[in-house]
Design a protein around this nucleic acid. Structure first.
Length: 711
DNA sequence: CCTCTCTAAGGTAGC
DNA sequence: CTTAGAGAGG
């Protein structure tokens, strides 16, 4: 028996790892060794408790976390971890649905839509239904559909009392019908289908319930309703569920996460084993004290207090700048100083609440020759050229994938215009066929029909030609026969895109290596489920910049949290929302706990946002951190700040004919409204008025007969 | 069919 | 201030 992996665990960690066969809730604070506990628990179950590797299922949210678990596990145990059910919710559901596609009512070749694909399919459905996209924004419908699916509801189960929600439900039904015709599933559908499959099919359900004696869940606070129900179904009555999470780090309510699942779990599973991991191995005491004090301001917590054996460390540095510009200058100065003193840039992170804040910082860093890396932006499999290439592959695998058809039917251009596509779409709709089948059996007449015929020929020849080839060669040939390679070769800025296409071949080869038995569908699913790295590597030692959300799970020696102002952090949109500020506070908690040694909190009293100067108050979160932990270093400010050119009273001095922003007004035609913005002065003065009935309009004050109104 | 211009909107984001 | 997406014109 091997137990060396148990050494070094603290008593709570050890207790969690060696729990008996019963469901347990592990409240794992930031930096408390959560991943280690999870993987060691699995190792211990297999090695000391004689559980088969196939009797364990472990679920994570990100591929990164799943991969990390697999890597650590294979380092601990001499077993082949491939084939174990360790993966993301979506990855495991995909696996389940591939294995039982018939029972789930799906073609074996079903493809997976990402958010973009989902939206474009939805737009098509809405256009076919003649729905006004102004009145019913597709994005909103998409949100509605995903929300319903995550609540476990199909269209016919959705109640609707008014025409608006009835329309939503109708679109939902139509959208699902179209997905079924095309043999495609969106992300939420993967989960819902898998849930329905198990709940309707007793044999299958019992099989998996019996098989997975242990179910381990990472980031439990991030699970949504459907994920929780799915886990509950799989656990049945006999399995032990080991749920690891931190309610204080729940920052994804906006995408459906339900922290309440932790309490429900505790109650519904009659949890006897509730373990808190509060010892932190990451940060110094002052940082943890700040985090603890801040999060105390939230209600309804499960309760937890982080501590460290490492001592208090440095005080938290706080800096209030006059302008966002000065704030950025301060940060860059400090970064340069730290770098001179020997801190690697890669160990320093700048965290911000929203992406819009990165621009100014980048500008300043660039001007000062500080290499940096911004997380976020397009990911590999989301790139246009990659999507095009994969659309060809999709079409060879699943002819009914209309998204794929539409994406490549005229790319590269083959003289098939919007007109022709529309004709085919109408025929397809009327005959209930996919675009591919309509192209084959009911091609348009005349020249358009000939062009469509040529496209059909291209795909058919391509399919035949690549059928016997291994995955990588399939794609290689496809790039030539589709004309994609030639297209990007001819394109003036096509070099990067060509390189990415070659990178796609590498990705395919890696996939073949990792999943030797995998087919085209598996590779396509992989591409949908794992969109890849956010950005190509740049300089080796670069400052890290990202949103606080993106920083979750990461840690850095030095962390700057910037823009600590009311309206920005907490974000103004959150203030009205139910538990909105609570979630922002948790976000701040996550930000603080990223720092190992040194933490900077910065803010600016005035800031350019969307071209307008805004005057913000310091964030309430600054006040919620005990003053004794903060070291204000504003002296630098006076030296760093050039006299500001912005006069706070400037906006009020403009001649706006006596009107001002925020005022209620009345218009003879548009009715009543509120002035939301102004520009120009005197004769040129224009104001933007958000009318109660007529929406937002820009009006010239010298022409519009605008009158002040009482509210 | 492509390119240009205009407008609108701009929180956070994994699979 | 940006940028993405939609509509108009060459």
């Amino acid at each position: 028996m091997r137990t060396e992996y148990l050494t070094g665990l603290n008593p709570e960690q050890l207790a969690a790892v060696t729990l008996p066969h019963a469901s347990a809730l592990i409240l794992a604070g930031a930096g408390s060794g959560k991943t280690r506990v999870l993987t060691t628990r699995i190792a211990w179950l297999i090695d000391n408790n004689h559980i088969s590797p196939f009797g364990v299922m472990a679920v994570t949210f990100t591929n990164k976390a799943a991969k990390e678990m697999l890597t650590r596990l294979s380092a601990m145990l001499p077993i082949n971890v491939r084939g174990m059910w360790i993966g993301t919710f979506h990855g495991l559901c995909n696996r389940l649905l591939r294995a039982h596609h018939r029972e789930a009512g799906l073609p074996s070749t079903f493809s997976i839509l990402d958010m973009q694909d989902q939206l474009s399919l939805l737009k098509r459905v809405m256009r076919a239904m003649n729905i006004d996209e102004e009145r019913t924004p597709p994005k909103q419908v998409q949100h509605y559909i995903n929300g319903r699916k995550e609540a476990g509801m199909r269209a016919h189960e959705c109640e609707s009392y008014d025409p608006g929600s009835r329309r939503m439900t109708e679109i939902y039904a139509e959208y699902d019908a179209q997905c079924n015709r095309e043999g495609v599933v969106d992300f939420a559908e993967l989960l819902l289908r898998a849930y329905e499959l198990l709940s309707r099919n007793a044999l299958l359900r019992e099989h998996y319930q019996h098989r997975f004696q242990h179910i381990l869940v990472d980031e439990f606070q991030d699970t949504n309703r459907l994920q929780y129900q799915w886990l509950k179904l799989l656990a049945g009555n006999g399995s032990a569920m080991f749920a690891v999470g931190d309610d204080d780090q729940s920052i994804y309510a906006f995408r459906g996460a339900n922290v309440g699942n932790m309490r429900d779990f505790e109650r519904e599973f009659k949890i006897q084993h509730f373990i808190r991991l509060e010892q932190n191995y990451r940060s110094f005491g002052n940082i943890l004290d700040a985090a603890n004090a801040l999060i105390e301001h939230n209600d309804g917590r499960l309760g937890k207090n982080l501590w460290t054996a490492a001592g208090p460390g440095e005080p938290i540095r706080a800096f209030e700048a006059l302008t966002d510009h000065d704030e950025a200058a301060f940060i860059v100065d400090e970064v340069k100083q730290l770098h001179r003193e020997g801190t690697a840039l890669a160990d320093i992170a700048i965290l911000y609440r929203s992406n819009a804040q990165s621009r100014l910082l980048e500008h300043q860093l660039f001007a000062n020759n500080v290499p940096y890396r911004v997380y976020g932006g397009l990911r590999f499999f989301e790139r246009q050229e990659i999507k095009h290439a994969l659309a060809y592959l999709r079409l060879t695998a699943n002819r009914d994938d209309d998204n794929a058809w539409l994406r490549v039917v005229n790319f590269p251009a083959r003289g098939i215009g919007a007109r022709t596509m529309e004709t085919v779409q109408v025929t397809a709709r009327e005959a209930g066929l996919s675009l591919w089948n309509a192209s084959c059996s009911h091609p348009p007449s005349g020249a358009a029909g000939k062009k469509i015929g040529e496209f059909v020929k291209i795909i058919e020849t391509l399919s035949q030609e690549i059928a016997p080839l291994p995955l990588m060669e399939k794609i290689d040939v496809l790039l030539d026969r589709s004309g994609l390679r030639d297209y990007y070769r001819a394109e003036k800025d096509g070099e990067d895109r060509l390189e990415n296409l070659e990178e796609l071949l590498n990705a395919a080869q890696n996939f073949m290596h990792e999943v030797p038995e995998g087919g085209v569908e598996d590779f396509l699913a992989h591409a949908s489920l794992e969109a890849g790295e956010h950005q190509a590597e740049v300089a080796s030692d670069a400052l890290q910049m990202m949103t606080v959300h993106a920083a979750k799970g990461l840690e850095f020696n030095v962390v700057f949290v910037c823009g600590l102002e009311e309206g920005l952090f907490p974000h103004e949109n959150s203030i009205m929302a139910e538990d909105g500020v609570g979630e922002e506070r948790r976000l701040m908690y996550v930000a603080i706990t990223r720092a190992r040694q040194r933490l900077y909190l910065t803010l600016a009293s005035q800031r350019q946002l969307f071209g307008q100067t805004r005057y913000n108050l310091p964030s309430r979160f600054m006040r919620e951190i005990p003053e004794a932990l903060l070291q204000w270093i504003n002296k630098r400010a006076s030296a760093a700040i050039p006299t500001s050119t912005t006069n706070p009273t400037f906006a009020d001095k403009r001649d706006l004919h006596g009107f001002k922003v925020g005022q209620s007004v009345a218009h003879p035609k548009f009715g009543s409204g509120v002035i939301t913005a102004a520009e120009g002065s005197g004769e040129d003065a224009r104001v933007q008025v958000n009318f109660d009935g007529a929406g937002s309009k820009w009006l010239m004050l010298s022409y519009a007969r605008l009158a002040p109104a009482a509210r």
